[in-house]
Design a protein around this nucleic acid. Structure first.
Lengths: 133, 133
DNA sequence: GTGATATGCAGGTATATACACGCATTATGG
DNA sequence: CCATAATGCGTGTATATACCTGCATATCAC
């Protein structure tokens, strides 16, 4: 008796959960990945792409492209490091900061709703699992 | 006291877990998404894109593109339905069937290894969570 | 039967993601 | 100092994913 693929099921669950957060943030024109990135930048600015990549556990090139999207939306800016000319200095723009301030309560509401839907037991299991995987 | 984003953490965990399965299947030149799709086709062939989409809980256009990749790898074929000319009839090719036969034990080994690493408690929690999300 | 509606697909567009390669800049060894 | 190594990025390439639009084919209502 074969168990279904943990990975495939987890991927599916992640798509579903992402859609919930995406929908919540849609009025602001951002998705949950962009929200996470904005927040990460905000907490570390100015920050290089390499550091952002390691903070997000994403490939540097991925972060670079995702930041570019934020730049196109005029939510973030990228300048060159003053000491190390190789480094990109990523910061939020004014608009980015403003939008993030609107986004946080929306995210919080979603987070709370998700926790309520799952119940404390499952939330704990989720936190444990995330750490274990 | 703010809890980190469930969604973002789950996305991260999913990326990590996917990488484990991807690595295991890499010798065959496929990743876990392709494995899941091959398997799904195998169990339902011949199958239309719409049905495949609903089975995988993926957008039809996504499945269409993913199947196209399998076709390019010569692992699957797509012909037109005989009754309904609109329908695509997706099947595995010989190569697809052969490769799947090699892939299944690799997948099983990974599945077992993951279960061992997590332990029965967490595996159960994972199954429960996946169903709940 | 024919016009309206529904269904199935392909393609455009866009984001998220990874890996490999190459270029520029910085750091290091001698 | 200078050659070499290390570091930081950008880009090419590729897959996975979703939404929307348009086209072809079926179905249905009358």
């Amino acid at each position: 008796m074969e168990k279904p693929c943990y990975c495939t099921q987890l991927r599916q669950a992640t798509r579903r959960l992402s859609a919930v957060y995406d929908d919540a943030l849609a009025p602001l024109g951002i998705n949950v990945a962009q929200y996470a990135l904005l927040r990460r930048i905000h907490r570390n600015e100015p920050v290089s792409l390499t550091r952002l990549g390691s903070l997000c556990d994403l490939d540097r090139s991925t972060v670079g492209r995702n930041v570019r999207v934020l730049e196109r939306m005029e939510l973030a800016t990228s300048t060159r490091g003053s000491e190390d000319q190789r480094e990109a200095m990523i910061k939020l723009s004014e608009r980015g900061r403003d939008l993030l301030q609107l986004a946080v309560p929306m995210w919080e509401a979603t987070q709370t709703a998700v926790a309520a839907r799952l119940g404390p037991q499952r939330v704990e299991a989720l936190e444990d699992l995330i750490a274990a995987i």
